[in-house]
């Protein structure tokens, strides 16, 4: 953490605060039964994680988390919630304990694995020595745009991004194939209302459709 000595304590406090908020929200989500409250809390969870990503200098990731996690997922969850009941059923017996054990075991393994990770911002870590430096040095003469993240995303890794766009498009297609276009039930109501407006506009007139 060279160059950050003076603010180390502040950064540590910030991280601890944000992570504790995330922890509390996660516990609340696990304990709540009202789906609406859960959807809202998961939106808040995304927003707090986005704040934390900003604190970690990952601004692009934070932006994506804020717009996708807090924005579109919340809206999509609300839409999906309308198709089901408003409360979740409480789990009982063994199904209540097993997920907790799985989470604790996975968490312990992740914490154990994180001991081997290089320190945050370590200039000698693999990510900061091989490809990362290469991108930083070559973007200016080769692409000539200021945002290296965009250069990597759109130009150096253009193929990957094409694949991601394909995945998003395929996801939209899959939902449509499973649930229908959404106009079967609603298209009928819309057309019905249009017809009513038309008849009201010229009462007694002929149906032009």
């Amino acid at each position: 953490m060279s160059g950050y000595e003076g603010s180390d304590l502040f950064i540590a406090l910030l991280n601890i605060t944000l992570l504790s908020i995330l922890f509390v929200i996660a516990i609340a989500i696990a304990r709540l039964r009202s789906l609406f409250a859960i959807v809202m809390l998961s939106g808040i969870y995304s927003l707090v994680s986005a704040t934390w990503f900003v604190a970690l200098d990952a601004v692009d990731v934070a932006f994506t988390e804020a717009s996708v996690g807090a924005g579109i997922s919340t809206a999509l969850f609300l839409g999906a919630m309308l198709l089901t009941s408003r409360t979740a059923k409480a789990e009982e017996g063994i199904t209540k304990i097993v997920p907790l054990l799985v989470v604790i075991a996975t968490g312990a393994m992740l914490v154990y694995a994180s001991i081997d990770l290089p320190a945050f911002g370590d200039p000698n870590s693999p990510a900061n020595t091989h490809v990362g430096v290469e991108y930083l040095e070559r973007t200016k003469p080769e692409i000539a745009i200021p945002n290296v993240v965009t250069a990597v995303l759109a130009s150096y890794r253009g193929f990957d991004t094409l694949g991601e766009v394909g995945v998003v498009f395929a996801a939209g297609l899959a939902v449509v194939l499973l649930l229908g276009f959404g106009e079967r039930s609603l298209g009928a109501t819309v057309r019905q209302k249009d017809r009513e407006i038309d008849t009201n506009a010229n009462p007694g007139g002929e149906d032009e459709r």
Binding site: L76, G79, L82, A171, L179, G180, F181, G182, E183, R184
Partner: peptide, 9 residues
């Protein structure tokens, strides 16, 4: 499109 598929029902 995904939102319409969910909410349009």
């Amino acid at each position: 499109t995904i939102f319409y598929a969910f909410a349009g029902r």
